[in-house]
């Protein structure tokens, strides 16, 4: 295992980690849609604001999961370095 190979794998892992974090786009769009609809709902029915807020936060926290999977992959590539033999 030469030094070049090690550094090559580390560099590719860093690129892969960067690509994995692109998964954050999806939850961003999804949470934005949820927040937009919640704002519209509060506009229609201001009395139900607390219910709407808690439902929105619950849904957003669940929608966040896919983005966090991307984050986990990036963390694994950067710190656990599974590709190094």
């Amino acid at each position: 295992m030469g030094e070049f190979n090690t550094n090559f794998i580390l560099g590719c892992s860093a690129i892969g980690a960067g690509l994995a974090v692109i998964a954050g786009i999806g939850p961003g769009v999804g949470q934005g849609i949820a927040a937009g609809h919640a704002a519209a709902a509060v506009g229609r029915n201001p009395g139900a604001k607390s219910d709407i807020t808690s439902t929105m936060l619950l849904g957003q926290a669940v929608a966040e999961t896919t983005g966090l999977y991307g984050l986990l992959i990036a963390m694994l590539l950067l710190f656990v370095k599974p590709l190094l033999p």
């Binding site: 966040e64 999961t65 966090l68 999977y69 984050l71 986990l72």
Partner: peptide, 16 residues
């Protein structure tokens, strides 16, 4: 798996 990973990744991201 999804329950535990969600909690773990959220807290880990804050820690990091």
């Amino acid at each position: 798996v999804s329950l535990s990973l969600r909690l773990f990744a959220n807290v880990l991201s804050g820690t990091v």
